[in-house]
Design a protein around this nucleic acid. Structure first.
Lengths: 334, 334
DNA sequence: ACCAAAATTGGTAGCGCTGCCAAAAAAATC
DNA sequence: GATTTTTTTGGCAGCGCTACCAATTTTGGT
């Protein structure tokens, strides 16, 4: 039993050393299981740790030893489930290896990203994880000067700073277009959210249009909403688009959230899917596969991206671009 | 212009001091804007900082000054959007005040929570934020001994360690039952996910049943699925429940994810909602309000919870339980 | 011009830990 | 039993910064 009242002064390693009747170095070695020590010493140290309720101070440990075992995530959003998924994949691996995840959210603003990267670097993280390749000059300069590993996530269409893990958004856009064309759709529209900020969605759209053009098919119309992607936004956007272009036979959405909104609009307006209108999303969210008609979409390797990113960093893998690919889900909406 | 090649050795404060021709203390004061210094000194320091690309080392700063300005979140899941929402609310406030969020995920397992809390305390955070009141004895002991602030989130039905911010889940369950009873439903069922682990969902269910019982209405049947809540899970569960109890006129779901799944089952099976079957969720997710019929549910103060939790911690507010309440959304499914 | 008060500045002792080294103890060898 | 080899151990100098204090410069008042 340890004492239960709140301790004024936190227990330090040297107090443990004294209580155990050994030197500080011995305590340090035992606790990190590093270097050599006798079984007896080990026992006395662990006993003292238990008795005093000692919790090592990693701030001090880090300062003394260099490696922080902190991995910083600077991500655009927590609302878009994509990023929590990546965090989840990375978190599991990091934790197993005794790394800690630190994060902050940019709201898709490059200037905020720059400020947050600066704040993160102050913790001397082992690695910084960012979304995509579009960063300010300041961000690039800081990251390069920092000497810490950098992983750019969920995109491989561009020049990586160091490591990149993800898939080709442009290719995903192309694959989506090819699928719709193969199915015979020709009067195609697009519904998207703010593309200046979500550059990965922009790249998909580029790939999509490129393939349409190459096939001699013109994108009939597009509806691009300001602000973040959301189901409500997608629903309103499709309604708007159809008002302008009622003859469309297929719509490509910037992602599944938007597409689900579109699907709900069709359900509400009794527009039969895909007979009258086909819908195509992006991401392959679980919810899109639980709707009455599963969404036709592209499943992206979000958790795997996080996982691999963490592994590369932990193993200090040399600079590298990893393409995890994607998978087209032939649902029932296109 | 600074040099662009990777710096072998990171720049330290004393190098800045030398380059600026001032003492270390002056650099420190200027950078923290704390204590007094002349305009000329300020200028020279900032100039040197810029020239050398100096990034302060907060590890060292923290060790020297005590306060870590780190806030640790130990949350059950990132998949359940509830927690990213809380993080989002807290993140904004923390960032403004130059705190950093650190997090790890317990998967709803108390033992993992204990291990993760221990790991977090090693960073000497200003506060630890946890979900709910159910913790192991070890977790409680560590937290109490740590001397750092503790916030328990999204629950107020229990005894708080220090601070608690959220709403009464039991009360939410009661309100849900009252609503269904008031609307005249009497053949009521329940669809839930693993309640041993998600104790807050369990408390809602308790409050729900209590109110039914008090009104002399018996819960007809329930379907409880192992594993996490998800739309797919909810869909399968409702199907199963209706097979056993086809005469139900209303179903209460453990949360909106499950309820959406139920709604999709009804759409797919042409069960008219709410005429033939009423559905009631919990959380008030945006997506539930964008479906053809908006979900009848309870909106919970997730972002506000995160926000207030962060504010209380930053202002070092005395121990306190804050009830942020909830709001019943009369959608179209009940 | 002189002295007191205020503003500015630099030196230095830690913060709690790890890494290195040399000393001490234990084990192995002849 | 003496000597070498191996294992275990403790002391102590930092890691980069902040807090404190004393020294210096500037300012203001007379």
């Amino acid at each position: 039993m340890t004492t239960d009242f709140k301790q004024q002064t936190t227990v330090t390693l040297s107090e443990v050393a004294e209580a155990a009747g050994v030197g500080e170095s011995t305590v340090s070695r035992v606790l990190r299981n590093h270097g050599s020590f006798s079984g007896k010493a080990r026992e006395r140290v662990l006993d003292a740790v238990e008795r005093l309720g000692y919790v090592p101070n990693r701030i001090a440990g880090t300062l003394a030893s260099a490696g922080s075992r902190l991995v910083a995530f600077v991500i655009p959003s927590l609302t878009n489930i994509v990023f929590p998924d990546v965090l989840r994949g990375a978190g599991a691996v990091l934790e197993e290896n005794h790394y800690q995840a630190v994060f902050s959210v940019t709201d898709y603003e490059p200037e905020r990203e720059e400020a947050l990267v600066a704040a993160m670097l102050a913790w001397r993280p082992t690695a910084v994880m960012l979304a995509g390749f579009e960063h300010t000059g300041g961000t690039l300069k800081m990251l390069r000067a920092s000497g810490c590993r950098v992983v750019e996530l969920l995109d491989i269409d561009g020049i990586a700073i160091d490591l990149a893990v993800g898939f080709s958004n442009r290719e995903a856009g192309r694959a989506s277009a090819e699928f719709l064309l193969k199915r015979g759709y020709r009067r195609i529209g697009y519904v998207g959210h703010d593309l200046d900020r979500d550059t990965r969605a922009g790249k998909r759209f580029d790939g999509f249009r490129e393939t349409l053009n190459r096939a001699g098919v013109r994108l009939v119309d597009r509806e691009i909403r300001a602000g973040a992607s959301s189901v409500g936004n997608g629903r309103a956007a499709l309604e708007q688009l159809l008002r302008r272009a009622p003859g469309l036979d297929a719509v490509y959405f910037s992602n599944d959230d938007m597409a689900l909104g579109g699907y709900f609009h069709c359900l509400a307006d009794a527009i039969s899917v895909p007979t009258r209108l086909a819908l195509f999303g992006h991401n392959g969210l679980d919810i899109g596969q639980a709707t009455p008609q599963p969404l036709t979409t592209i499943r992206t390797p979000r958790v795997a991206t996080g996982k691999l990113a963490a592994e590369l960093v932990i193993n200090d893998h040399p600079s590298h671009v990893a393409d995890l690919g994607f998978e087209l889900i032939e649902g029932a909406t296109a």
